[in-house]
Amino acid sequence: MDIQLQEVEYRYAAGTPFERLAIEDVSFTIPEGVFLAVVGHTGSGKSTIIQHLNALLRPTKGQVVIGDRVISAGKKEKNLKSVRKKVGTVFQFPEHQLFEETVEKDICYGPINFGIPEEEAKKRARSLISQVGLSEEVLQKSPFDLSGGQMRRVAIAGVLAMEPEVLVLDEPTAGLDPRGRKEIMDMFYTLHQEHGLSTILVTHSMEDAALYADEMIVMHKGRVQKQGKPRDLFSQPDELAAFGLSVPEVVRFQHRFEALSGMKLDRTCLTIEELAEELARAKKRGEDR
C-alpha cells in the first residue's frame, strides 16, 4: 500500500488567535516496502506529518492518499477504522497508552477493536511477546508492574498485534539505555525485512537513519527541505548543518580523516565496518604505490 502526501498544510487551532502553522506544502510518496527516516530539528513538524498517515489529523489544505482512500481538506471522512487498521503507529513513549489489567489484554485491545476474534488476538499476543524480547509469563502480569523498558516492549507488541501493513515509529527508543535501544531497533528492522512492512521512522539519531533507512526526508520549519538516500544526504554535511542537523559519527570521522589526510575514500561509509574496510583499502593502495 502506497501513501502519498500532496501539498499538505496543517494548522493547529485553525481560526483562533492561538492558530499555529505546523507544516506547509509537504508532498512526498511512501512506496510500499520502503524504510523511510524522517529527521529534523525539534518543532520542525515531524510528529504532525506522521499523524496524517493514519488520518489522526485532517490536512487544512491539500490531501493525503492512503491506499485507496483520499483524505482531503474540508471533507469529513466516515469510517476511518479501515485506514487505521492498515497503518500502525508507535508514538513517543508508547508505554503511556497501557491501561489493561494484564499485558495480554492490553496487546489484544487493538485487534479486538478491529474485529479480530478474541482467540486469534490471544494467539497473536503469545507469538508477539517473544518477538519483542519478553517471556510468556509476562502475559498474565499487570503492565504497571513492569520496568520502563519492558512496558515499552509491551506497548509496541500492542501495535504490532494489529498486523498493520505500514508501521509508523515516532522516536521509539527515546529514554532507553544503549542495549535496549539497539535491541528494539534491530527488532523493527527484522520485521521490515521479513514481512516487507513499510516503515516510517521519526528519529533524532542520525546513526539510526544511516543504519536502517533506504530513504530519508529532512524537515525544517514545517517544510520538506531534502529527500534522498542517506548515503547521498550524509555526504553533504554542510547542507544538513544548515538545518541544525549533524551527520552520523562514522561519517563525521571519515570527513575528519579526509580533511587531515587529503585522501578521499571511495564512498561515504554508513557503518563502522564499512569505514574499516574502506580505510584498509586506502592503506593498501598507499602501500602498493
Binding site: Q51, L56, R84, T89, H96, Q97, Y109, N113
Partner: peptide, 16 residues
C-alpha cells in the same frame, strides 16, 4: 496535551 496524545494513541489502536 497528554490527554490529546493518549486519545490519539488509542484511536490509532481502533478506539472510538
Amino acid at each position: 496535551d497528554e490527554t490529546d496524545k493518549i486519545m490519539k494513541a488509542q484511536i490509532a489502536r481502533g478506539a472510538d
